[in-house]
Structures are given as structure tokens and as C-alpha cells.
Design a protein around this nucleic acid. Structure first.
Lengths: 144, 144
DNA sequence: CTATGTGCAAAGGATTTGCAGGTAT
DNA sequence: ATACCTGCAAATCCTTTGCACATAG
């Protein structure tokens, strides 16, 4: 993503082949990935890349507003790529199979805005996760 | 809380003075506390209590449904006591002073229910946090 | 009695940092 | 040239575990 490259330049930071690869793969994979998974993927292209570089690049992406750290309660931080076209979505996590579904709801957004306003606050960002069970009997996603 | 004591007995677990103290203080303090803060408080009463006991007791409280672990992104797990009278609330976190405000909204709850239903899911639990900025000019809570 | 709990210290897992080279600009 | 980056390993932070002793039921 060239938006990221130009942001780097503005900040006086450098473009390196490791960093570029990590960022490229991060956006191509386009899922709620964690550092370990990203490292593994990236090592398929450049085997000598280390943990530190992946963590440092992810932190950079977060600082520059290209990724959002997420904690789904499994002990590791996952990172959600921000494609600047899409509005910020929420998540529904299946309690049975751990599938993560993204959603967006205008009415919900309006309500949250109203709630915050009522308390004299303006929302900067939010975290909304619904942990839910599939209603379909004998759902194919169900584990165990 | 005696509800907790009886739950312990049912599970064949024991009541000890450390455990009782930790649980008592946890509910008295009644805030989004982390293990370290709770340990510190409890050591004011029994200086020899160790980290492990606090962590083990908190885990017990969570397992038995008396506390909810929360991650507000500051690297530590905080625990929210569940007073069985109150319905499960959400949080608004001030991005300036980190104050945590609890809230409840019926219309919001209905909307979330509708959203999940539309995707063929039933909500088991949710995590909703609004990170927001105070609208009051020169808010006294503002840091820095 | 004997299963469960405690305190300590050591282990664990995820993430960060220090350092001695590398390498973009 | 000279910041900035990298890889490695060591360090750090929060949390869990192993173990020998203590204690509740």
C-alpha cells in the first residue's frame, strides 16, 4: 500500500525489503492475524526475518493508523488491517468454532453516538465484540 | 459474599482466610481492579499473601461467574465484579484520563440482539468499550 | 486423615529492548 | 555520512506452575 510508504517518508522512516514485505503480506492476507502467523508467512519469502522486525512493523502500522490491535481473549494480540475505504466494523465471534464475522450497522452507530453524547463524550474509537452461538441446528461449524 | 462461599462448598472447594479476604476486598473495592492492585490492598491486611494466591482466587471468581476479565489495552487483565442484581453493563473509557464509566442502554441491547439474529446467531456475551474524549472544555480530568 | 490451598521461586508465553553490524537516503 | 533498521539473544512483563508445607472439612 503506497499510502503507507508515503507516510513512512513523511515521518523520516525508511523503506526496507523486510518492512515492505511484512506490510505487503499483512494487507494481502487481510485477516485478524497475530505476530507469529505473520512471521511464519513472511519467512516463506525471506527466511531470516526475525520476531522483532515483525513486532516492530506491526507497531508501526498501528501508530500510523493502518492496523488496529485486537484482543479476542486467546492470549495473543491480533491485528486488523484498516483499508481506508471501509468504515470501522465490529466483530461477532462464534463461541463454538471461533469463526470471526465482521459487521457494520448504521443504527447501532447512531445509538452509540447518542449514548456517548448523553454522557458528554465524543467517541474516538470503539471495541465491540459479540460472542455468540450459531442458531442453526447441527451447524457444520460447530466443533467438538 | 455468601453466594460465593456456598458455590465453593458445592464444588468441594475450601474456604481459607486468604481466599475469603481476597474475595471480600474484591467486592468491597468494587472497581476494575487488576491482580497487582488487589494484592497490594490485601497485603495491607495479611502481608504474607502471594501473587499466586490472588491470581488463583481471581481465576476461581471468573470460573464461578462472580467476575469478568477485561482487557482495556493497558497490558494487564482487569476484573469486573458481577453483582448479580445488575444487568451486564458496557464501558466508556476516557482517552484523556483513563476514567472508566459504566453504562447500560436498553435500545442498544435490542439493536445488538437484532443484529445477531439477522446473522443467525444468539449472543452469549459481549464486549463493548467506547474510547472517548470528554466534550467539556478544560475538563478537569484531562491529563498532561 | 487426605484433598485442597498456600507461599515461594522458577517457568512460561508474548512482546520489547540492547547491541553490533547492515543499509537506505 | 548518518540516521534508521535488522537479527539475534537477552530482558521484561504478566501470569501460571511445581513443590514442600499447612490447613480445612
Amino acid at each position: 500500500m503506497e499510502a503507507f510508504s508515503s507516510r513512512l517518508q513523511e515521518a523520516g522512516l525508511k523503506s526496507t525489503k523486510q518492512r515492505d514485505l511484512i506490510v505487503e503480506r499483512f494487507f494481502e492476507l487481510d485477516k485478524h492475524i497475530n505476530a507469529e502467523e505473520l512471521l511464519e508467512d513472511v519467512r516463506g519469502h525471506q527466511p531470516r526475518i526475525g520476531y522483532a522486525t515483525v513486532y516492530r512493523t506491526l507497531k508501526l502500522l498501528v501508530e500510523q493508523g493502518f492496523a488496529l490491535p485486537k484482543d479476542f481473549g486467546d492470549g495473543q494480540t491480533r491485528y486488523d488491517p484498516i483499508h481506508n475505504q471501509d468504515p470501522q466494523h465490529d466483530h461477532l465471534i462464534c463461541v463454538d468454532c471461533r469463526k470471526i464475522i465482521e459487521f457494520n450497522d448504521e443504527e447501532l452507530a447512531r445509538r452509540l453516538h447518542t449514548i456517548a453524547e448523553g454522557m458528554q463524550y465524543s467517541i474516538r474509537r470503539k471495541k465491540l465484540e459479540l460472542y455468540a452461538e450459531c442458531q442453526i441446528p447441527r451447524c457444520p461449524n460447530k466443533l467438538g
